[in-house]
Amino acid sequence: MAQNSPTAITRRLRRKETISSYLFLLPSLVFFLGFVVFPMVLCLFTSFFDSNLNATTPDRFIGFQNYTELWKDPVFLKGLKNTLIIVVVSVPVVTAFSLWIASAIYKMKEWMLSAFRCIFYLPVVTGSVAVTVVWKWMYNNYYGVLNYVFKGLGIIETNINWLGNPSTALWCIIVILLTTSVGQPIVLYVSALSNVDPTLIEAGQVDGTTKLQNFWKIKWPQIMPTTLYIVVITTINSFQCFALIQLLTSGGPNNATQTVMYYIYYTAFKLYRFGYGNAMGIILALFIAALSAVQFYAAKER
């Protein structure tokens, strides 16, 4: 009798649903554990070893030696500095530019809005290799369109080796990064701005608010979750800037475009120092986590 009581049936049903839910989760969980959690743990573990590609010499436990070496490595410090420059420049620029564009287009007719969304999103869905090849051609010292245009306009007298000059190379990378980073934030901001409650804006207008006040007091708080997401994602993407460096400059000239992410790759796959590379990866992850936490905290306070 007790087995067929309503409580027992509910409990059985709930258990079955729970099991089904976990079964549906299982494939994703397997991949998440296999391709995210396990490599993370392995990365942390290997960072305490002198690990290389040599099969004849086993990995040697060296404690925190890789971590202490990092802070004495001028190339790593240069890479960290460059990475921070990329983050500090690209995050505010991407956020502000995306918000500006989204504000300008979100009230347009549907077909125009779609056209703009498509245009700005195009570099995001275009393969990074294709984007890079085009930019490399534009920056080319000998026949690049940039030198051609600037010389034609009288801005420069002789060709500039954009990617070969330590003072311009990093900025060239940042420009490309910006073009490939603004697409998603624009789409998100357009959506967020469209969802702002119009009655609040109308109420504000009745109370005599200016356009600026409308934005800061009504729209801005309502799009804050979107802004937070964009800032965090752009920060992470900027910290992980790799493909552009790999395809355009290999970190040169003279480490002028060296980033932590590229240096990790270089250390692991060119010098075969896997332990040292993993230690860098851990430090990079800590930087990203710390900055994301600060951003979440700042947004929460606001």
Binding site: N141, N161, G164
Partner: peptide, 13 residues
């Protein structure tokens, strides 16, 4: 001295 090109690109040029 050109730090923006490698051997393959030199051949193209």
């Amino acid at each position: 001295y050109d730090p923006a090109i490698n051997g393959g690109e030199e051949i193209n040029l």
